[in-house]
Write a protein that binds this DNA or RNA. Structure first.
Length: 203
DNA sequence: CTTCAGATGCTCT
DNA sequence: GAGCATCTGAAGA
């Protein structure tokens, strides 16, 4: 598992470095794993797109002020969840949104969570856009607001640099560091000029 | 491939 | 009451 200090850094750096890492989800004796492929940075200090813009502190944004690595999970549009991992030092409200992952372990469970079917029954269309959105990530990995404010280090949710680290088979040699693409964040038009910040990253 | 409407409930004003 | 860090299926090009 990554050290808490991984998250206690500049949010854009953490968002970039989370790409290629593995999200581990444990519940009911199950272990699910997925490789992070898309992230976005949100920084309350100066970012109008962030829920905690200008240190706005409400019941909802409280977890953003918690120690680095804390989970921030909220309900969006009444029916989907978004997973974030808190960054920077405690008291600096900032986080990285996990926008996309690619499953590596527990595919049948993940397919069941998302489409109520087995992995082999997925249609080509379902496979192509399997976990490529924040709501899809949470649905597939069974993440909801019960995990909100979960402290870093909890077995229910971890991030590792490799699957071997937790006794799972990983890719033999993952090659060099993947090329990182950069662009503006999705769905934050309300943030004015800050919507143009190139704080979305994907591989 | 693209656009588009509708679903749905919580949070803050 | 307004708005939201979204997703899906249907319809059209």
């Amino acid at each position: 598992m990554l050290p808490q200090s991984f998250f206690e850094r500049d949010t854009v750096t953490v968002a970039r470095e989370l790409l290629g890492k593995y999200l581990i989800r444990r519940y009911d004796g199950l272990v699910l794993a997925a490789r992070v492929t898309e992230t976005e940075a949100y920084i309350g200090r100066m970012d109008r797109a962030c829920h905690a813009y200008h240190y706005r502190r409400t019941k909802r944004t409280e977890p953003l002020f918690a120690p680095p690595g804390t989970a921030y999970v909220y309900l969006i549009y009444g029916m989907y969840h978004c997973l974030n991992l808190v960054t920077e030092e405690e008291g600096e409200p900032a986080a990285v949104l996990i926008r996309g992952v690619e499953p590596r372990c527990g595919l049948d469970i993940i397919a069941e969570n998302r489409f109520h079917c087995k992995a082999e029954e997925l249609s080509p269309r379902q496979k192509k856009h399997f976990l490529d959105g924040p709501g899809k990530v949470c649905a597939g990995l069974n993440i909801d607001r019960r995990l909100n404010a979960l402290p870093w280090g909890s077995p229910e949710l971890e991030v590792c640099a490799s699957l071997a680290e937790i006794g799972l088979d990983g890719p033999p040699g993952d090659g060099g560091p993947p090329a990182i693409h950069t662009g503006p964040r999705i769905g934050v038009d309300y943030a004015g000029e800050d919507a143009l910040l190139p704080w979305r990253f994907w591989i």
